[in-house]
Simulated assay, not measured.
Amino acid sequence: MLETRASVYGLRELGEQTLEESTGLIIVGMHRSGTSALTGALHSLGANAGHSSDLTGASVENQKGFFERRDVREICDALLHAAHADWWKISNFEIGQVEQNQLEQQRQRFSGIVESLSKAKTWIIKEPRLCLLLPLLIDLVPNPICILIYRNPIEVAKSLRTRNQISLQQGIALWEKYNWAALQSVKHLPCVVVSYHDLIADQATTLDSVVDQLAALGAKGLGRPKDSPDFIDRSLQRSVAEPEEMEMLTVEQRILWSFLERKAKPDGDFGYKPTGAQKFILQDLEYHFARHSKAGGGVDFASPSIRSRKVLKLAGFLDHIVFYLRSKIRG
């Protein structure tokens, strides 16, 4: 692994702070899981997200703004593409597949961003792709604190269906892959776990708790929610899960969801293992994207193909087999 920028620059002054004196908050969370809302709220409390010209602006998709740096997005896309992957093309993705020259180039770019942001006591970066890529970059961040935000898988899948026209099963499979990767990425790192639903239901109380936990881990200079105007608009939560829709989850997805709901420190094993079903469904998603891309038309998943129905049926069957075998082994 490359030498970190922190060791290269030593104690050189960066404005009021040295690189080593600053704290980097890294927001880790699946797409459509409230990463923008949480980042924006913490930015309003004093965490430096960078100049507004560096950030993706507000849109119909996210009316409060994304608080997502375009350069970090470019770095993450470059790393994924260097492994023949994309944000949706991850059925076979592993970080060891990233081509070495591209990795070195993007790490250098990321170091420059960290150096710039570290002029503040506490700074913040948000990018959903970091769920998959954080292990390639985290050593470049002095004093990192991860904040893992999660959301109900059905709600995430519904939001993805609206935005990207993909099926609920495919959206849930993406949710599973991203959240499992996120838990693996933040393992053994200082970490705060936040529920999107708590944030929406009671912004002040949830942010108060987050600020307290961050301060205990060393973050400095953050204000209190009562001193800042409400940033989160509940009306923007347009995708809601019905109780009966949770029956769509596989056994393994339920295990993962239950663990996230406990907000436990993601350090040990909690009984979850990725299954072949997840991979089949993600490969089906990739098949559709590739087919429609080659055809030059828009992606339309509103009418599942025969192939999709067969894959989903096979995926469910495989899940039942895996669960049965594991129950026998554990029993």
Results as ranks from 00 to 15, higher is better:
residue 266 P to Q: 04
residue 289 F to C: 11
residue 251 V to P: 12
residue 257 W to D: 14
residue 281 I to V: 14
residue 282 L to P: 03
residue 296 G to Q: 05
residue 264 A to K: 08
residue 247 E to G: 02
residue 254 R to W: 04
residue 256 L to T: 04
residue 240 V to R: 15
residue 272 Y to A: 05
residue 239 S to D: 12
residue 268 G to V: 00
residue 290 A to N: 14
residue 295 A to G: 13
residue 273 K to W: 11
residue 258 S to E: 14
residue 252 E to L: 00
residue 296 G to L: 02
residue 254 R to F: 00
residue 293 S to V: 04
residue 297 G to W: 02
residue 294 K to N: 12
residue 287 Y to G: 10
residue 255 I to A: 11
residue 270 F to D: 09
residue 253 Q to V: 05
residue 241 A to V: 01
residue 283 Q to N: 15
residue 239 S to T: 10
residue 263 K to T: 13
residue 245 E to Y: 04
residue 244 E to D: 12
residue 271 G to N: 07
residue 293 S to K: 10
residue 280 F to P: 09
residue 277 A to M: 02
residue 262 R to P: 10
residue 282 L to Q: 05
residue 293 S to G: 15
residue 283 Q to E: 15
residue 281 I to N: 11
residue 288 H to M: 05
residue 244 E to V: 04
residue 244 E to L: 06
residue 276 G to T: 00
residue 254 R to A: 02
residue 293 S to R: 12
residue 294 K to E: 14
residue 265 K to Y: 11
residue 264 A to D: 14
residue 241 A to L: 05
residue 270 F to K: 05
residue 278 Q to P: 10
residue 253 Q to L: 01
residue 288 H to K: 05
residue 255 I to V: 13
residue 275 T to N: 07
residue 271 G to K: 03
residue 255 I to H: 10
residue 271 G to T: 03
residue 280 F to R: 15
residue 283 Q to Y: 08
residue 252 E to P: 00
residue 258 S to M: 08
residue 246 M to V: 01
residue 242 E to A: 13
residue 272 Y to Q: 03
residue 280 F to I: 03
residue 279 K to W: 03
residue 248 M to C: 02
residue 272 Y to P: 06
residue 291 R to F: 11
residue 279 K to C: 09
residue 280 F to Y: 13
residue 289 F to Q: 13
residue 244 E to G: 01
residue 268 G to F: 03
residue 292 H to S: 05
residue 255 I to T: 14
residue 273 K to M: 12
residue 284 D to R: 11
residue 240 V to D: 14
residue 280 F to E: 12
residue 249 L to H: 03
residue 274 P to W: 01
residue 260 L to A: 05
residue 273 K to V: 13
residue 247 E to N: 12
residue 239 S to W: 09
residue 289 F to N: 13
residue 287 Y to E: 10
residue 253 Q to N: 02
residue 256 L to M: 07
residue 239 S to P: 08
residue 289 F to D: 14
residue 279 K to I: 03
residue 252 E to C: 01
residue 249 L to P: 03
residue 281 I to A: 12
residue 254 R to G: 10
residue 294 K to D: 14
residue 273 K to N: 15
residue 253 Q to R: 02
residue 269 D to A: 10
residue 297 G to V: 09
